[in-house]
Simulated assay, not measured.
Amino acid sequence: MNKEPEFERVLIKLSGEALMGNQGFGITPEMIHYVAEEIAKVYRLNVQISIVVGGGNIFRGVAGSSAGMDRTSADNMGMLATVINSLALCDALEKCDVPTRVQSAIPMDRIAEPFIRLKAIRHLEKGRVVIFAAGTGNPYFTTDTAAVLRAHETHAQILFKATQVDGVYDKDPVVHDDAVMFRELSYMRVIEKQLHVMDMTAISLAMEHDLPLQVFDLHQEGNIYKAVTGQEDIGTRIYNK
């Protein structure tokens, strides 16, 4: 398993739902420990790692607004949910001997540093993992968009989306038995086909700044390590062609 990393600096986007494990809500201790161990394997390759975690396991703003809640209030609640997940992941990583800092886009100095771009880069250069919490700090923007934005701001070479599925398909594989998974895609094709990878704001921003994206299954042990070391059979790679 000893391989050289393909990338020096990466950003990993984790879905909040991935932290639930088999339960329907919240954070499963076993799952967050598993995620921390998977990230620690990559950290030991001397790769600079930043992370954005979603908040869907606690509260999802779009779902709240569809139930009649004001969208701004719902999104603010969703951003706070990402802070809870970020603090939990920080604790789990520290227990794996991975020095970690949480930076929040919403000021809350007692529990997290404010997001300061140059300070985040300095943390990465000093070998600390940085978790970016509270999305962009603004309603109406998803944590996918926050991940692309932070990846660009910190000069990450690639964005890894570690999620619940093993790649990007031409149709929903849960519903359609004949769904085909793509190994490679262009951003333009994702937009043209309206493929469900990230929201279109995130996809457009990644395409504009030529940021490669790789989507793969978080639950398959070793996948983050394989993605960072450039093993071709992991998920779907999206880039400008």
Rank of each mutant, 00 (worst) to 15 (best):
F141W: 06
R44A: 09
L45E: 07
T229F: 14
E221G: 14
I12S: 00
T154Y: 10
T201E: 04
L89R: 02
Y187N: 09
A92C: 08
K119F: 08
G16C: 11
S186C: 13
Y34H: 11
K193V: 04
L45H: 08
A120H: 08
A81I: 01
F182C: 12
K119I: 13
A18H: 00
F160R: 08
S50Q: 07
V98Y: 05
P99D: 01
S104A: 12
I39R: 05
N22T: 12
G64D: 10
Q48P: 00
D109Y: 15
Y239G: 14
T28I: 03
G68E: 07
I111S: 06
E30H: 07
V10H: 01
I84A: 03
Y169D: 05
L87W: 05
A202P: 01
V35I: 15
A40H: 07
M207R: 14
V52S: 05
M188G: 13
F216P: 06
M20S: 12
G54K: 02
D170A: 04
R189D: 12
H155G: 13
K193C: 07
Q214G: 03
P5V: 12
K161L: 10
Y187V: 06
D170F: 03
Q164K: 14
E17F: 06
Q103C: 15
A92V: 02
T154C: 15
Q103M: 15
N223G: 08
T100K: 03
V215G: 05
D210T: 10
G135N: 02
A147E: 02
N138V: 09
I39H: 06
L118Q: 15
I111R: 01
Q231D: 01
L218M: 14
I84Q: 02
R237K: 15
D97Y: 12
H209P: 00
D97V: 06
E17T: 08
V83Y: 07
A134S: 11
M20H: 07
D91K: 11
P114R: 10
T142E: 06
L195A: 02
H196D: 13
I158V: 00
R237I: 15
P114M: 09
H33F: 15
H219I: 15
V83I: 13
I131T: 04
V190A: 03
L149D: 05
P99A: 00
L124A: 06
L19D: 01
R110Y: 14
V174S: 11
E8G: 07
